[in-house]
C-alpha cells in the first residue's frame, strides 16, 4: 500500500463528493442500529450494576464473567462470533434447546434484515460489562447512610433506585449516553472484524477505511473523516444542551416540591391540633 502521485490542490471537491456519493451517507444510517444497541447496553448495565451493588452472593464472580469480554482483542472477537453465528453452530444450537426449529432461523450474518442486529449484539456483549463496572463504581460512592435512611422510611428497592441511585449518578449516566451516541456514529469494529462490511453491514468508518486503504483515495477519505467529526461535534453539543435543559427543569421542580411538602406538614399539624382540641372536649 503506497500513496502515489503528486499533491494537487482541488479545493472543496472532495467534500462535495462525500455528499454526492450514495455509499457514504447510506452507511451513516446504520448508526441507528448501534444507537439502539447502546440504549439496550446502557440500561442493561445500569440494571445489573444496581443489582450487584446490593448484597449478592458471588457478586464478584458474576461481575468478572460479565466484564471479561471487554478484555478480548478485536480479531479474536471476530473469530468467536463468526463461529458463534455460523449456521447450525453455537447460537442456533442454544436456540434449538429453547425449542426453536433450525429451518425457521435466519442466517445471522447473511440475512440483510437481521445481520446488523447480530453485529450490534456483539458490540453490546463486549461493552455492557465495562459500563456496568463504571456504574458500580459510581453507585458505590453514594453515601450508604442514604440507603439506611430510606430503609427506615420504608422505601423499597425500586424507590431506592429511582430516588437515590439515579439522581446520584446522573452525571456519569449522562456522560455515558453522550459517549455511546457519538460512539455509534463511529461504529467500526464489529463489521470490520466479523463481516468486513459485506451484505450491507458496512458502517461509515468501514466504508472510509475501504476508500482510504484499499482504493487509496486518501483525499476523499480524509474529507469523510472531517465531515463525520463535524457531525459528531454538532451532535455532542446538542446533547449537552439537551441534558442541561432537562436537568434544569428537574431542578426547577424542587422548590415547588418543597413548598408542597411544607404545606402538607402544616396541614398535618393543624389536623393534629384539631384532633387534640376535640379530644380535650
Amino acid at each position: 500500500m503506497k500513496y502515489i502521485g503528486d499533491r494537487k490542490f482541488v479545493g472543496l471537491k472532495n467534500y462535495i463528493k462525500v455528499f454526492q456519493r450514495d455509499d457514504c451517507f447510506d452507511a451513516l444510517k446504520l448508526s441507528l442500529y448501534y444507537m439502539l444497541g447502546s440504549v439496550v447496553q446502557l440500561s442493561l448495565a445500569l440494571y445489573l450494576a444496581t443489582i450487584l451493588s446490593f448484597k449478592v452472593k458471588g457478586g464478584n464472580i458474576f461481575k468478572g464473567f460479565m466484564f471479561f469480554p471487554f478484555l478480548i482483542n478485536g480479531i479474536a472477537i471476530g473469530f468467536i462470533f463468526k463461529f458463534f453465528y455460523t449456521r447450525g453452530f453455537v447460537f442456533d444450537t442454544v436456540l434449538q434447546w429453547c425449542g426453536f426449529k433450525l429451518d425457521n432461523l435466519p442466517y445471522w450474518l447473511r440475512d440483510q434484515s437481521i445481520n446488523n442486529f447480530s453485529l450490534v449484539g456483539t458490540s453490546v456483549w463486549r461493552y455492557f460489562g465495562q459500563n456496568m463496572v463504571l456504574f458500580i463504581g459510581a453507585i458505590m460512592s453514594v453515601d450508604s447512610e442514604l440507603y439506611e435512611a430510606a430503609m427506615l422510611d420504608g422505601a423499597n428497592k425500586f424507590q431506592q433506585f429511582k430516588y437515590i441511585i439515579v439522581p446520584s449518578i446522573k452525571t456519569i449516566i449522562t456522560l455515558n449516553v453522550i459517549l455511546s451516541i457519538t460512539g455509534s456514529l463511529s461504529a467500526f469494529e464489529p463489521p470490520y472484524v466479523i463481516t468486513s462490511g459485506a451484505n450491507g453491514t458496512g458502517t461509515y468508518f468501514v466504508v472510509m477505511h475501504e476508500i482510504a486503504h484499499t482504493q487509496q483515495k486518501v483525499g476523499l477519505a480524509s474529507a469523510m473523516a472531517i465531515v463525520l467529526l463535524l457531525i459528531i461535534f454538532i451532535v455532542t453539543i446538542f446533547q449537552k444542551l439537551f441534558f442541561k435543559y432537562v436537568f434544569k427543569n428537574s431542578e426547577d421542580e424542587d422548590p415547588r416540591a418543597e413548598v408542597r411538602r411544607q404545606r402538607a406538614i402544616k396541614r398535618s399539624i393543624k389536623r393534629q391540633q384539631r384532633l387534640s382540641a376535640a379530644g380535650g372536649k
Binding site: L44, Y47, L48, I51, L52, V56, F62, F65, M66, F68, P69, I72, I80, F81, F83, F84, F89, V90, V94, W125, G129
Partner: peptide
Amino acid sequence: LSLVFFSFCAVLPVVSC
C-alpha cells in the same frame, strides 16, 4: 435469575470456543 442469565450470555461464546 438475571445475573445467571446474563453471565451465561457473556460466557457462552468463549466457552463454546
